[in-house]
Computed example of a mutant assay.
Amino acid sequence: MERRYASHPQEVKQFDTARLRKEFHIPTLFTADKLELVLTHEDRLIIGGALPVREEVKLETDLKELGVGFFLERREIGIINVGGTGTVTADGTAYELNHKECLYVGMGTKEVSFTSHDPHNPAKFYLNSAPAHKVFPTVKATLEEADSSALGSFKNSNDRVIYRFIHQNGIQSSQLVMGMTLLKEGSIWNTMPAHTHPRRMEAYMYFDLPEDAVVFHLMGQPSETRHIVMRNEQAVISPSWSIHSGVGTSNYTFIWGMAGDNKKYDDMDPVSMKELQ
Protein backbone atom coordinates (compact mmCIF):
# COMPACT_ATOMS: atom_id res chain seq x y z
CA MET A 1 0.00 0.00 0.00
CA GLU A 2 1.41 3.37 -1.02
CA ARG A 3 1.42 6.18 1.54
CA ARG A 4 0.75 9.86 0.79
CA TYR A 5 1.25 12.58 3.39
CA ALA A 6 -0.93 15.64 3.96
CA SER A 7 0.22 18.97 2.49
CA HIS A 8 -0.12 22.56 3.70
CA PRO A 9 -1.76 25.00 1.23
CA GLN A 10 1.15 27.44 1.54
CA GLU A 11 3.55 24.69 0.56
CA VAL A 12 1.43 23.51 -2.38
CA LYS A 13 1.67 26.98 -3.95
CA GLN A 14 5.31 26.18 -4.75
CA PHE A 15 4.68 22.79 -6.41
CA ASP A 16 5.47 22.26 -10.08
CA THR A 17 3.47 19.81 -12.24
CA ALA A 18 5.57 16.79 -11.31
CA ARG A 19 5.26 17.47 -7.57
CA LEU A 20 1.50 18.07 -7.80
CA ARG A 21 1.04 14.74 -9.53
CA LYS A 22 3.31 12.94 -7.06
CA GLU A 23 1.35 14.22 -4.07
CA PHE A 24 -2.26 14.11 -5.31
CA HIS A 25 -2.58 12.07 -8.53
CA ILE A 26 -3.24 8.31 -8.45
CA PRO A 27 -2.44 6.98 -11.94
CA THR A 28 -2.99 3.23 -11.45
CA LEU A 29 -6.06 1.74 -9.81
CA PHE A 30 -6.59 -1.46 -11.78
CA THR A 31 -3.91 -4.12 -12.32
CA ALA A 32 -4.97 -7.61 -13.38
CA ASP A 33 -5.51 -9.96 -10.42
CA LYS A 34 -4.09 -7.46 -7.94
CA LEU A 35 -5.21 -5.00 -5.28
CA GLU A 36 -3.96 -1.42 -5.65
CA LEU A 37 -4.18 0.80 -2.55
CA VAL A 38 -3.11 4.35 -1.64
CA LEU A 39 -3.40 5.61 1.94
CA THR A 40 -3.61 9.38 2.23
CA HIS A 41 -3.09 11.12 5.55
CA GLU A 42 -5.95 13.42 4.54
CA ASP A 43 -8.48 11.97 7.02
CA ARG A 44 -6.75 8.57 6.60
CA LEU A 45 -8.80 7.68 3.52
CA ILE A 46 -7.66 4.64 1.53
CA ILE A 47 -8.27 4.82 -2.23
CA GLY A 48 -7.83 1.80 -4.44
CA GLY A 49 -9.05 -0.73 -6.92
CA ALA A 50 -9.38 -4.47 -7.41
CA LEU A 51 -9.31 -6.06 -10.87
CA PRO A 52 -9.96 -9.80 -10.60
CA VAL A 53 -9.56 -11.30 -14.06
CA ARG A 54 -8.83 -15.01 -13.61
CA GLU A 55 -8.06 -15.05 -9.90
CA GLU A 56 -9.80 -14.02 -6.70
CA VAL A 57 -8.44 -10.81 -5.21
CA LYS A 58 -8.54 -10.41 -1.44
CA LEU A 59 -8.79 -7.20 0.59
CA GLU A 60 -5.44 -7.55 2.31
CA THR A 61 -2.45 -5.30 2.97
CA ASP A 62 0.47 -4.73 5.34
CA LEU A 63 -1.49 -4.53 8.58
CA LYS A 64 1.34 -2.76 10.41
CA GLU A 65 0.41 0.34 8.40
CA LEU A 66 -3.09 0.21 9.92
CA GLY A 67 -2.18 -1.18 13.37
CA VAL A 68 -4.90 -3.83 13.27
CA GLY A 69 -5.37 -7.58 12.86
CA PHE A 70 -7.46 -7.38 9.68
CA PHE A 71 -8.28 -4.67 7.15
CA LEU A 72 -11.77 -3.72 8.38
CA GLU A 73 -11.13 -4.17 12.09
CA ARG A 74 -11.40 -0.40 12.57
CA ARG A 75 -12.49 0.62 9.07
CA GLU A 76 -15.45 0.66 6.70
CA ILE A 77 -15.36 0.49 2.92
CA GLY A 78 -17.42 1.63 -0.05
CA ILE A 79 -17.12 -0.30 -3.32
CA ILE A 80 -18.43 0.74 -6.76
CA ASN A 81 -18.05 -1.55 -9.77
CA VAL A 82 -17.01 0.31 -12.93
CA GLY A 83 -16.45 -2.82 -15.04
CA GLY A 84 -18.29 -6.02 -15.92
CA THR A 85 -20.38 -8.04 -13.49
CA GLY A 86 -18.54 -9.36 -10.45
CA THR A 87 -19.02 -10.60 -6.91
CA VAL A 88 -17.86 -9.22 -3.58
CA THR A 89 -17.83 -11.83 -0.81
CA ALA A 90 -17.92 -10.46 2.74
CA ASP A 91 -17.52 -13.02 5.54
CA GLY A 92 -19.03 -15.74 3.35
CA THR A 93 -21.96 -13.73 1.96
CA ALA A 94 -21.79 -13.07 -1.78
CA TYR A 95 -23.01 -9.78 -3.29
CA GLU A 96 -23.27 -9.57 -7.07
CA LEU A 97 -22.43 -6.11 -8.39
CA ASN A 98 -23.28 -5.02 -11.90
CA HIS A 99 -21.82 -1.97 -13.63
CA LYS A 100 -22.15 1.20 -11.52
CA GLU A 101 -23.62 -0.58 -8.50
CA CYS A 102 -22.40 0.11 -4.95
CA LEU A 103 -21.70 -2.01 -1.89
CA TYR A 104 -20.98 -0.73 1.61
CA VAL A 105 -19.16 -3.15 3.94
CA GLY A 106 -19.13 -2.32 7.62
CA MET A 107 -16.47 -2.36 10.30
CA GLY A 108 -15.61 -5.77 11.75
CA THR A 109 -15.95 -7.74 8.53
CA LYS A 110 -12.95 -10.07 8.60
CA GLU A 111 -12.72 -11.39 5.04
CA VAL A 112 -13.55 -9.54 1.80
CA SER A 113 -12.73 -10.87 -1.66
CA PHE A 114 -13.45 -9.94 -5.28
CA THR A 115 -14.15 -12.10 -8.34
CA SER A 116 -15.32 -11.50 -11.93
CA HIS A 117 -17.97 -13.44 -13.81
CA ASP A 118 -16.27 -13.11 -17.21
CA PRO A 119 -12.48 -12.76 -17.59
CA HIS A 120 -13.05 -11.14 -21.00
CA ASN A 121 -15.17 -8.42 -19.34
CA PRO A 122 -13.85 -8.33 -15.77
CA ALA A 123 -15.28 -6.36 -12.88
CA LYS A 124 -13.37 -3.28 -11.75
CA PHE A 125 -14.04 -2.55 -8.11
CA TYR A 126 -13.18 1.01 -7.07
CA LEU A 127 -12.66 1.32 -3.30
CA ASN A 128 -12.82 4.04 -0.66
CA SER A 129 -12.14 3.08 2.97
CA ALA A 130 -12.31 5.34 6.02
CA PRO A 131 -11.71 4.81 9.73
CA ALA A 132 -14.89 3.79 11.57
CA HIS A 133 -16.14 3.92 15.16
CA LYS A 134 -19.42 2.01 14.87
CA VAL A 135 -20.68 -1.10 13.09
CA PHE A 136 -23.19 -0.55 10.30
CA PRO A 137 -24.68 -3.36 8.19
CA THR A 138 -23.36 -4.33 4.78
CA VAL A 139 -25.76 -2.90 2.14
CA LYS A 140 -25.90 -3.00 -1.66
CA ALA A 141 -27.48 -0.27 -3.80
CA THR A 142 -28.23 -0.03 -7.52
CA LEU A 143 -28.43 3.21 -9.49
CA GLU A 144 -32.22 3.01 -9.26
CA GLU A 145 -32.04 2.75 -5.47
CA ALA A 146 -29.64 5.68 -5.04
CA ASP A 147 -30.84 9.15 -4.10
CA SER A 148 -30.49 11.00 -7.39
CA SER A 149 -31.00 14.51 -8.70
CA ALA A 150 -30.47 16.30 -12.02
CA LEU A 151 -28.39 19.46 -11.89
CA GLY A 152 -26.91 21.98 -14.30
CA SER A 153 -27.90 22.63 -17.88
CA PHE A 154 -26.74 21.97 -21.42
CA LYS A 155 -26.40 25.73 -21.87
CA ASN A 156 -23.74 25.84 -19.15
CA SER A 157 -22.03 22.61 -20.31
CA ASN A 158 -22.76 20.88 -16.99
CA ASP A 159 -25.97 18.90 -17.50
CA ARG A 160 -25.51 16.01 -15.06
CA VAL A 161 -27.13 13.50 -12.72
CA ILE A 162 -25.80 12.95 -9.20
CA TYR A 163 -26.29 9.56 -7.52
CA ARG A 164 -25.77 9.48 -3.73
CA PHE A 165 -25.13 5.99 -2.35
CA ILE A 166 -23.50 6.33 1.09
CA HIS A 167 -24.63 9.48 2.91
CA GLN A 168 -26.68 10.82 5.78
CA ASN A 169 -30.02 9.89 4.19
CA GLY A 170 -28.87 6.77 2.32
CA ILE A 171 -26.64 3.83 3.19
CA GLN A 172 -25.47 4.48 6.74
CA SER A 173 -21.81 4.68 7.68
CA SER A 174 -19.54 6.03 10.40
CA GLN A 175 -18.08 8.81 8.26
CA LEU A 176 -17.71 7.65 4.66
CA VAL A 177 -19.77 9.50 2.03
CA MET A 178 -19.72 8.16 -1.53
CA GLY A 179 -21.56 8.56 -4.81
CA MET A 180 -21.26 9.15 -8.52
CA THR A 181 -21.91 11.93 -11.03
CA LEU A 182 -22.73 11.27 -14.69
CA LEU A 183 -22.27 14.09 -17.19
CA LYS A 184 -24.51 13.95 -20.24
CA GLU A 185 -23.20 14.12 -23.80
CA GLY A 186 -22.15 17.68 -24.63
CA SER A 187 -21.45 18.56 -20.98
CA ILE A 188 -17.89 18.82 -19.71
CA TRP A 189 -17.81 20.84 -16.46
CA ASN A 190 -18.13 19.37 -12.97
CA THR A 191 -18.49 21.18 -9.65
CA MET A 192 -18.40 24.67 -11.09
CA PRO A 193 -19.10 27.11 -9.44
CA ALA A 194 -16.58 25.49 -7.11
CA HIS A 195 -16.67 24.94 -3.38
CA THR A 196 -14.53 23.77 -0.48
CA HIS A 197 -15.56 21.90 2.66
CA PRO A 198 -12.92 22.42 5.38
CA ARG A 199 -14.58 19.74 7.51
CA ARG A 200 -13.98 16.91 5.00
CA MET A 201 -11.48 15.83 2.38
CA GLU A 202 -12.58 14.32 -0.93
CA ALA A 203 -11.30 12.03 -3.67
CA TYR A 204 -12.45 11.86 -7.29
CA MET A 205 -12.07 8.93 -9.69
CA TYR A 206 -12.75 9.76 -13.35
CA PHE A 207 -13.94 7.09 -15.78
CA ASP A 208 -16.06 6.57 -18.91
CA LEU A 209 -13.43 8.69 -20.69
CA PRO A 210 -12.38 7.83 -24.28
CA GLU A 211 -8.74 6.79 -24.66
CA ASP A 212 -7.73 10.11 -26.24
CA ALA A 213 -9.72 12.29 -23.80
CA VAL A 214 -8.57 14.04 -20.62
CA VAL A 215 -10.07 15.96 -17.72
CA PHE A 216 -8.27 19.04 -16.40
CA HIS A 217 -8.91 18.63 -12.68
CA LEU A 218 -8.75 21.95 -10.81
CA MET A 219 -7.46 22.10 -7.25
CA GLY A 220 -5.90 24.52 -4.78
CA GLN A 221 -7.15 27.45 -2.72
CA PRO A 222 -9.65 29.62 -4.65
CA SER A 223 -7.02 32.34 -5.05
CA GLU A 224 -4.24 29.88 -6.01
CA THR A 225 -5.71 27.33 -8.40
CA ARG A 226 -3.68 24.60 -10.09
CA HIS A 227 -4.58 21.77 -12.47
CA ILE A 228 -3.79 18.08 -12.84
CA VAL A 229 -4.42 16.27 -16.14
CA MET A 230 -6.53 13.15 -15.53
CA ARG A 231 -7.09 10.18 -17.83
CA ASN A 232 -9.56 7.30 -17.75
CA GLU A 233 -9.79 5.38 -14.46
CA GLN A 234 -7.45 7.62 -12.51
CA ALA A 235 -8.05 9.19 -9.10
CA VAL A 236 -7.05 12.43 -7.39
CA ILE A 237 -6.84 13.43 -3.73
CA SER A 238 -8.46 16.72 -2.70
CA PRO A 239 -7.49 18.19 0.70
CA SER A 240 -10.22 19.88 2.71
CA TRP A 241 -8.84 23.36 1.93
CA SER A 242 -8.89 22.80 -1.84
CA ILE A 243 -11.50 23.27 -4.52
CA HIS A 244 -12.19 20.16 -6.61
CA SER A 245 -13.58 20.85 -10.04
CA GLY A 246 -12.81 19.88 -13.60
CA VAL A 247 -13.41 20.25 -17.30
CA GLY A 248 -13.05 17.50 -19.87
CA THR A 249 -12.47 17.17 -23.59
CA SER A 250 -15.62 14.99 -23.62
CA ASN A 251 -18.31 14.04 -21.15
CA TYR A 252 -17.37 11.53 -18.43
CA THR A 253 -18.42 10.01 -15.12
CA PHE A 254 -16.72 10.39 -11.77
CA ILE A 255 -17.00 8.81 -8.34
CA TRP A 256 -16.63 11.04 -5.33
CA GLY A 257 -15.79 9.89 -1.83
CA MET A 258 -15.46 11.95 1.34
CA ALA A 259 -14.34 11.46 4.94
CA GLY A 260 -14.29 13.89 7.84
CA ASP A 261 -16.49 15.45 10.50
CA ASN A 262 -19.96 14.70 9.13
CA LYS A 263 -22.01 12.81 6.54
CA LYS A 264 -23.98 15.74 5.10
CA TYR A 265 -23.61 15.71 1.34
CA ASP A 266 -24.41 19.42 1.05
CA ASP A 267 -22.00 20.62 3.77
CA MET A 268 -19.86 22.90 1.62
CA ASP A 269 -18.56 26.46 1.46
CA PRO A 270 -19.43 27.96 -1.95
CA VAL A 271 -16.77 29.86 -3.88
CA SER A 272 -18.04 32.66 -6.09
CA MET A 273 -16.74 32.93 -9.63
CA LYS A 274 -15.23 36.32 -8.74
CA GLU A 275 -12.99 34.70 -6.12
CA LEU A 276 -11.29 32.26 -8.47
CA GLN A 277 -7.78 33.05 -9.63
Rank of each mutant, 00 (worst) to 15 (best):
L127A: 11
L127I: 14
T93A: 10
V112Y: 06
A123V: 14
V105I: 15
F125I: 08
F125H: 08
Y104R: 11
A123T: 14
K124L: 12
T89S: 05
F114D: 00
A123R: 14
V88E: 13
G84C: 01
K110A: 10
V112A: 01
K100D: 09
Y104T: 08
L127S: 12
T109D: 01
L97T: 05
L97D: 02
T115K: 04
T87M: 11
V112W: 02
V88G: 03
K100L: 07
T93C: 07
V88A: 11
E101R: 02
G106A: 14
P122G: 03
T89Q: 04
H117K: 15
E101I: 05
Y95G: 04
G83H: 13
T109A: 02
G106W: 12
P119R: 03
Y95D: 08
K100P: 03
P122R: 02
N98L: 03
K124N: 09
T87C: 11
N121C: 03
F125K: 05
N121Y: 01
D118M: 04
H99C: 09
H117I: 07
A94K: 11
V105L: 10
Y95M: 06
N121F: 00
T87Q: 14
Y126G: 05
F125V: 09
L97C: 07
Y126Q: 12
A123P: 14
F114N: 00
D91K: 13
N98F: 03
K110D: 01
H99G: 09
V82E: 12
N121V: 01
H120M: 13
F114G: 00
S113I: 09
A90H: 01
E111D: 15
G92W: 00
N121L: 00
G83R: 11
H99Y: 13
A123L: 13
L127F: 09
S113G: 12
G84D: 01
V112Q: 07
K124V: 06
G108F: 14
G108R: 10
M107Q: 12
G108Y: 11
N121Q: 09
K100V: 04
G106M: 11
K100R: 12
E111W: 12
K110N: 11
V82A: 12
L103T: 05
E96M: 04
T115P: 03
G86N: 13
D91R: 13
A123C: 13
N121T: 00
G84T: 05
H120V: 13
L97R: 06
M107D: 07
H120N: 15
C102Y: 14
G108N: 10
F114C: 00
L103P: 03
Y104W: 10
T89D: 05
A94V: 10
P122Q: 02
H117T: 07
L127N: 08
Y95T: 07
L103F: 05
A90V: 08
G106K: 14
Y126M: 11
P122F: 01
E111K: 13
D91T: 11
Y126E: 10
